[in-house]
Simulated assay, not measured.
Amino acid sequence: MKNPSPLTRILIPLLLLLLLFLLSSSASQAAPSSLSRGSSLSVGDDSDVLLVSPSKSFSCGFYNVGSNAYAFSIWFSDFANKTVAWTANRDHPVNGHGSKISFREDGGMVLADTDGTVVWSTNTSSTQADRVQLLDTGNLVLKDPSGNILWQSFDSPTDTLLPTQPITKTIQVVSAAAPRSLSSGYYSLYFDNDNVLRLIYDGPEISTGEWRGIMGRRDGGF
């Protein structure tokens, strides 16, 4: 067997170094599971994924809902069609370029459209919120330095309840307007004033009760 040429002896180490660099660069650019104050992401960045849960089961970022229209959402990472589990601005999509989600220095997280108009907020300004985390449960949370949850997406579901997510007296689940649509539909699931879980159809021409569930506590889950 012939000995490798001097050029081969030089190229092989260089190629190995390049491969290691590319792998390291890819790992460093992977989406984090948490953000600190001052972080932001704009529509049209290199990656529209803002956060990925530690197990990589859920992703959070900008979800395309139409021509030049985006929603800030959480979706199942493993599904090819990115099945959405939660949306912040389901009825108020933002424009495709220049819109931004920001975790501000004052502890608030806001979604602003291209012109700077705030279309959604966690209302946590002037709090001790110091990090945003996407948990393996699919829950997006804002925590203080002690780990206390100051805001969570589980408290404001859209059309989906995930495992471990409770439904309480302050929570209302609203159906999507159509298959693969994120906009609000006409069916609502919630506890009524009699502590009964009720499914209501509230359409443009008629509003009616469709179903009544078992008695439950309004101050807690099932």
Rank of each mutant, 00 (worst) to 15 (best):
residue 44 G to S: 06
residue 48 D to K: 00
residue 57 S to N: 13
residue 71 A to H: 05
residue 75 W to T: 09
residue 92 H to V: 13
residue 102 S to A: 11
residue 56 K to Y: 03
residue 88 A to C: 08
residue 51 L to H: 06
residue 61 G to Q: 05
residue 99 S to G: 06
residue 48 D to V: 02
residue 25 S to G: 03
residue 101 I to L: 09
residue 31 A to T: 07
residue 44 G to M: 06
residue 54 P to M: 10
residue 66 G to I: 07
residue 94 V to C: 03
residue 55 S to G: 13
residue 71 A to T: 15
residue 50 L to I: 13
residue 21 F to C: 11
residue 85 A to E: 02
residue 56 K to A: 15
residue 61 G to L: 11
residue 57 S to M: 05
residue 84 V to T: 08
residue 29 Q to P: 00
residue 93 P to T: 06
residue 82 K to N: 15
residue 52 V to S: 15
residue 67 S to Y: 13
residue 93 P to H: 09
residue 71 A to G: 12
residue 89 N to G: 02
residue 78 D to S: 15
residue 86 W to G: 04
residue 63 Y to D: 03
residue 45 D to H: 08
residue 60 C to I: 01
residue 43 V to S: 01
residue 66 G to K: 06
residue 42 S to W: 01
residue 24 S to N: 11
residue 61 G to M: 03
residue 101 I to G: 00
residue 49 V to Y: 07
residue 81 N to Y: 07
residue 31 A to H: 02
residue 83 T to I: 10
residue 84 V to P: 07
residue 79 F to W: 05
residue 43 V to G: 04
residue 103 F to C: 05
residue 67 S to T: 14
residue 85 A to D: 01
residue 59 S to A: 15
residue 38 G to V: 01
residue 43 V to W: 02
residue 100 K to F: 01
residue 39 S to A: 15
residue 97 H to P: 00
residue 91 D to F: 04
residue 34 S to Y: 12
residue 82 K to F: 08
residue 77 S to Q: 12
residue 40 S to V: 00
residue 18 L to N: 10
residue 62 F to N: 02
residue 19 L to F: 11
residue 52 V to P: 00
residue 39 S to Q: 10
residue 48 D to M: 11
residue 73 S to C: 15
residue 101 I to Q: 02
residue 22 L to M: 11
residue 98 G to Y: 06
residue 45 D to P: 00
residue 63 Y to L: 10
residue 94 V to N: 02
residue 95 N to T: 11
residue 93 P to N: 08
residue 61 G to I: 01
residue 87 T to R: 01
residue 24 S to G: 12
residue 84 V to S: 09
residue 103 F to D: 08
residue 64 N to K: 14
residue 39 S to M: 03
residue 69 A to H: 07
residue 76 F to A: 08
residue 62 F to W: 14
residue 49 V to C: 05
residue 58 F to W: 06
residue 69 A to C: 06
residue 47 S to T: 13
residue 80 A to W: 09
residue 66 G to V: 06
residue 51 L to D: 10
residue 82 K to H: 14
residue 60 C to M: 12
residue 56 K to M: 03
residue 76 F to C: 04
residue 96 G to V: 00
